[in-house]
């Protein structure tokens, strides 16, 4: 069984936010506007976390692309009363929209604040609905959503591999954000596959996980800046 994980090299990342937009387009995030933004309600499964360093003036800000960490010990899954978020058989932290009661316990429990809530029913002004991705369901009002590691792409990749009667190969399953990253900062694959690029990078001395100390065991691994 693969252990899907992502590496984000902060030394390559330019904070361009192509990943942010790619994710929105791929995953049918609704276009909203100044009003929704002003109320702090925007949905962005991938976002740039801005950590303005507290030490001293003029210290360089840190900008970190932040998807769901797909924790191996996810605080969100533990607290969900209705089993609407769980670790699926591929090891991804999945979200079952029809089951979610919208209590937003998971959103408050996730230490990375990467879960989002559908405050209302969103619209795609005509003809924008034309660009909706048929592989990703549109979320109803009142449920929570988050980065899925584009698991629909895993499904498609598996179907394709099966149709070609072969095994899933490295690079068959690539999330939208990883695919677009201009600087090649993001790499995705099987962390347990010794030959995969992710597993190699995950061993780098520059590798670290966000808030490792919380014991959430994220499967998103960052590489720090520097040699």
């Amino acid at each position: 069984m693969a252990r899907w994980g992502m590496v984000i090299d902060l030394d390559r990342c330019t904070a361009c936010q192509a990943c942010v937009v790619a994710c929105k387009v791929e995953n049918n995030i609704p276009p909203t506007g100044a009003d929704v933004a002003g109320r702090g309600r925007s949905i962005s499964w991938m976002r740039l976390a801005r950590n303005v360093s507290e030490h001293g003036e003029g210290a360089a800000p840190q900008w970190i692309p932040l998807p769901c960490m797909h924790c191996e010990n996810p605080p969100c899954v533990k607290v969900c009363p209705a089993t609407a978020t769980m670790i699926d058989k591929e090891g991804l932290v999945a979200q079952v929209y029809p089951r979610c009661i919208g209590c937003r316990y998971c959103t408050t429990a996730c230490p990375y604040t990467v879960r989002y809530f559908n405050w209302k029913k969103y619209d795609w002004p005509f003809p924008m609905e034309q660009s909706l991705n048929p592989d990703v369901s549109i979320r109803p009002k009142g449920v929570v959503e988050k980065c899925t590691f584009c698991h629909h792409r895993l499904q498609l990749a598996k179907d394709r591999a099966r149709a070609e009667s072969r095994l899933l190969a490295e690079g068959d399953y690539v999330p939208a954000c990883v695919q677009t990253c201009p600087s090649g900062a993001m790499v995705f694959g099987d962390l347990d596959d010794r030959r995969s690029e992710v597993s190699r990078l995950a061993e780098s001395p520059r590798a670290f996980r966000l808030m490792e100390e919380l014991g959430t065991k994220p499967k998103v691994i960052y590489l720090s800046k520097g040699e």
Binding site: A18, V21, A22, V25, S131, Q179, P182
Partner: peptide, 24 residues
């Protein structure tokens, strides 16, 4: 219907990548 833009993986400028504007 066009549902997603990706970079052309063969293209020498972007090798399959796109900037946020291209993505949007």
């Amino acid at each position: 219907r066009a549902v997603k833009l990706e970079g052309n993986p063969l293209h020498p400028i972007n090798a399959g990548r796109l900037c946020p504007k291209g993505q949007a």
